[in-house]
Simulated assay, not measured.
Amino acid sequence: MVTSTVVQRHRDTNRYEPHELVRELNAGLGTTLVAALAGSKNRAQPYEWAKPDGAEPRAAAWNRLQFAHQVWRAVEEAEGAGVARRWFIGGNPLLSEQSPIAAIRDDRHAEVRRAAQAFVDGDVDE
């Protein structure tokens, strides 16, 4: 289900410059996890993406980064940065015990969105 909150987060994320968005993800998750969710084999790539004059992510990586940012903001606003980071790296029963990082890398965005919403809502029956 797509709610007005989801649409608003999508709109907000699209207003970010790529460098700014990656800087926020790097600050919250760390560059190693950002590289992993984007599908980059180079763990230093998020440093480059975050530089104002650095390279921009390719289309597939950018799609994952934008999506991860939307989910990050939702979980972080509801639960705080520490909980959000742990949620991103931990196994999740709604994702077949994969981490949200791995599921985002695999482009399982709808599943991740449902898992994040269930977590934020406290809905264990999802």
Rank of each mutant, 00 (worst) to 15 (best):
R108Q: 03
V22F: 11
D121H: 13
L29G: 02
A118C: 05
N14P: 10
A115W: 10
A78W: 15
E111I: 03
A55Y: 02
P46V: 14
L25P: 09
V120Q: 07
E20T: 02
Q70K: 11
Q66E: 11
A81S: 14
K41M: 08
A102V: 05
P52Y: 00
R58L: 04
V71E: 06
A55K: 00
G39M: 02
A110Y: 07
A116G: 03
N42Q: 07
L25T: 05
Q66I: 05
A55P: 08
T3M: 08
V22W: 10
K51E: 03
P18L: 00
D107Q: 13
V75N: 11
R15Q: 08
G54W: 01
R58C: 03
R23A: 07
R105S: 08
R23C: 01
G54C: 00
Q45D: 10
D125G: 05
T31G: 11
F88D: 09
R11W: 14
R105M: 04
L33S: 03
A78K: 12
E20F: 08
W62V: 11
Q45S: 06
D125M: 04
F88K: 10
A35T: 06
A55C: 10
R108F: 05
S99A: 01
D123M: 13
N63P: 15
A38Y: 05
L94Q: 01
V75R: 06
L33F: 02
W49G: 02
A118P: 13
A38Q: 01
G28S: 01
V83W: 15
D121N: 14
Q66R: 04
S4K: 13
V112E: 04
V75C: 14
Q8W: 15
P18V: 04
A78F: 14
A103C: 00
Q117A: 14
S40T: 10
T13Y: 03
P46A: 12
L33K: 13
D53W: 15
I101E: 03
A84T: 11
Q8V: 11
R64G: 06
W49F: 11
A118W: 00
R15D: 09
A50D: 00
E24N: 10
V34M: 00
A36P: 04
T32F: 06
P93H: 04
I101L: 05
Q117E: 13
E111V: 04
A118Q: 01
S96K: 00
H69V: 12
R105L: 01
G80T: 14
A118R: 06
S99E: 02
T3F: 14
E17W: 03
A118F: 07
A81T: 09
A55H: 01
E97R: 13
A78R: 13
Y16T: 09
L33P: 00
R43M: 10
